[in-house]
């Protein structure tokens, strides 16, 4: 794997891979960053995985560029040999209804398909989370089928309800909190994606999200259970080198 290091300041460096949106490459970035944090590599204070880069903050009293670069080299070497085909999929219920997705008809028209077919297309793909950011719990995910990859609105909406699910070109995602935004809204999840008093995220970069269409009745039922702390998202593990 081709990569280089860049020293950002006295206590941060960036591992730079070829600039591209590529699931395999990003999986390597995710694996190395999770290992750096979970194995508590000496001196590492924080890491930020992005599409093709990995930013590492460190304490210069405890480590050095040289030492850290050597450790990252070995992590990259060992991760490169690992099985990357395992997928952790988080299944997110979404109600695709005109009330929650004001752009549903427009996107269907853009794709020259029925609303029903649009829902099939959107739920038929597992979306890889390349990175987290922008808003708490916001996942940068891709890629939606080209047919429904409608560009964002020319004039963004002033306010979008939490849980709204949208499309912006090849990207799709959920608004975890109320926010302005220009994504084409096609539905809404009843799940509370961000709770400031208990900000534990339900997915992280490197996971996949699979949308599951639900009815309005189910939406309200799940919402009630979710708020009562009585609803667990389904997670599915697929792939890997087992034959089951």
């Amino acid at each position: 794997m081709d990569y280089s290091y860049f020293q950002i300041n006295e206590q941060a460096l960036e591992v730079v891979f070829p600039e591209q949106i590529n699931v395999e490459e990003n999986k390597l970035v995710q694996q190395v960053s999770q290992k750096l944090i979970e194995e508590e590599t000496a001196g590492v204070t924080g890491v930020i995985p992005a599409y093709h880069t990995l930013t590492v903050n460190f304490d210069y009293d405890l480590t050095s560029f040289k030492l850290l670069e050597g450790q990252i080299d070995s992590l990259i070497a060992s991760s490169s040999g690992e099985d990357m085909s395992v997928k952790k999929i988080v299944e997110l219920p979404v109600c695709y209804d005109e009330e929650f997705g004001p752009d549903l008809e427009d996107v269907a028209e853009f794709a020259s398909v029925s609303v029903e077919k649009l829902i099939k297309l959107h739920t038929g793909t597992d979306y890889f989370i390349f990175m987290m950011g922008f808003l708490p719990g916001f996942a940068y995910m891709g890629s939606v089928p080209e047919q429904i990859a409608m560009p964002r609105l020319k004039v963004p909406r002033k306010s979008i309800a939490p849980g709204s699910v949208g499309i912006a070109g090849a990207q799709t995602g959920m608004y975890p909190v109320e926010s302005p935004g220009g994504w084409r809204l096609i539905g809404r999840t009843p799940i509370q994606l961000y709770d400031r008093n208990n900000p534990v995220l339900k997915y992280r970069s490197g996971d996949y999200v699979r949308f599951k269409a639900i009815s309005k009745a189910e939406y309200y039922e799940i919402q009630k259970r979710d708020r009562a702390g009585d609803y667990t998202l389904k997670t599915i593990t697929e792939g890997g080198n087992t034959n089951d």
């Binding site: 950002i8 300041n9 941060a12 960036e14 600039e19 591209q20 949106i21 890491v47 930020i48 995985p49 992005a50 599409y51 093709h52 880069t53 990995l54 930013t55 903050n57 990175m131 950011g133 940068y140």
Partner: peptide, 11 residues
Amino acid sequence: SLLSEGTVFGN
């Protein structure tokens, strides 16, 4: 134009 990258204090 660039793909987003991680930020640090003082960028």
